[in-house]
Amino acid sequence: MVRCPAGTPAGQNRPSRRAAMAADTASTPAIPVIDLGPYLAGKPGAPEATAAQLRHANETIGFLTIVNHGVPASLVEEAFAACARFHAQPLDAKLALRVDGEFRGYVPVRGSTTRHSRLNADNQPNENEAYFMKRVGEDAGATDRWPAGLPGFREVALRYYAAMDALAQRLLPLYAMALDLPADWFAPHCDRPLTGLRFTHYPPARYGANQFGLAPHADTSFITLLAQNRVPGLQLRTTDGAWIDAPVVPDSFVVNTGEVLHRWSNGRFINTPHRAYNLSPGPRYAIPYFFHPNPDTLMEPVPSCRVPGEAPRYAPMTVGDYMAWFRQQNYGLSAKAKADAA
């Protein structure tokens, strides 16, 4: 079970929520910005220097922003536009793709509730709708869970998905070195990764008690890659308990540690709680990508994070088993739900 302290209760309505956010949010961003340019260009000493920056970020806040990452800005814009196109469809068209037992497809507004996290008590259903895509190894994109009336949508989504896959793989050596492991240590555990891409729409909302666009939680992933959003709404909680706004850095990705890496590092790398809102008068879109190791990977401390004479902080568990538990907690994919979606 994820071990998380209690979170901050939500406000009663939109004006009070704005006041609560202002009172609860630190004014100075604390997310470090890491330039991947020298590392990706193969400059001598860059891998070690970049890994040291990444280590510090993950041991102190669990979030970082990467720039010069190699993903074209035009592709990111295409992905955001595809997300908006999908959610602009009539509800019936989206419900025809209701999420299936493989967790691919559409979840409507208030169709999920964050139950796996103890950060906030009595969460109400999340005020967002989302379209989930998954691809595994050579089976990339082999699914019929695609919208029928959106020419070009599938192609854009898969190109963006492929770019995220490649970026995640390029980051793995840095994470290994940051944990004092050989650069290729994660490679055999991540050659059949369990990944996911989510196109999310946060409509304007008047948030009541315990209501959020996405309730306070910590991700389950190894890492999450989130393209910067022009409409603010992402907040994270620092180790001292303050909620801060994620700063907007042009042409960047916010990267955060998930529960898988937190457990794998025996708690050394922090998986920081975060939450999302849309307090703007218009729509807000998000296109997070989630990277997990191979489903059969056993989450037990990596060699450099084992403490002699001490038991691991978390009981060993495979990535696949952990994700199955998470899906059941938050989306209720029971046998009945699978049958209804068939």
Rank of each mutant, 00 (worst) to 15 (best):
L179W: 04
R98M: 13
Y202P: 06
Y175W: 15
V302F: 08
D139Q: 15
L40Q: 12
T200S: 09
H217N: 04
A286N: 08
V107E: 03
A88E: 14
S112M: 07
N256C: 00
A166D: 15
A88W: 03
L194S: 14
I31P: 03
P273W: 05
A121L: 14
D165R: 11
P316Q: 10
N126T: 05
P301L: 07
T113D: 00
P147M: 11
H292G: 04
S117Y: 03
R104L: 02
D191P: 01
A215H: 02
E77W: 00
Y314C: 02
N123D: 07
P288F: 06
M323Y: 13
A242L: 13
S334L: 12
T224M: 01
R159T: 08
G241K: 09
P288G: 05
A49C: 06
F269S: 02
E127C: 07
A130V: 14
P312N: 10
G111T: 03
C83V: 01
A337N: 11
S334Q: 10
Y285R: 06
G282H: 13
Y314L: 01
G309H: 11
P308F: 12
Y131T: 00
K338F: 00
S74E: 15
F222H: 03
R327L: 15
R18Y: 04
P38T: 09
H201K: 14
A49D: 13
L171R: 02
M317I: 15
E155L: 03
L279M: 14
Y39C: 03
I270E: 03
G105M: 05
P47H: 08
P147Q: 09
T200R: 05
